[in-house]
Amino acid sequence: MMADLGFEVNERVDITDVVCPVTFVKTKVALEELEEGEILQVHLNEGEPVMNVPRSVKDEGHQILKLIENGDGTYDLYVRKVGD
């Protein structure tokens, strides 16, 4: 599966167990742990999380690489960390 993406994932975070605004907080904390250029996979729910979390990540200046719909009401968002 990694090969399909065309990049290597450095870290994963599951935010399907929390609700807004903790979803974003958890994502932000996970990103802070990474080095610049590293890639985070965020596992998130449909609805409010997918409508808001990618947007907030973008507003913080990180690069969104891909969003994959898993077909079970969840998504995987791939983010490259930009800046420290």
Binding site: V50, P54, L65, L67, E69
Partner: peptide, 12 residues
């Protein structure tokens, strides 16, 4: 466009 599909999902 990188065809990520996000816009389709966020449009209410």
């Amino acid at each position: 466009c990188i065809n990520c599909g996000l816009c389709e999902k966020v449009c209410r």
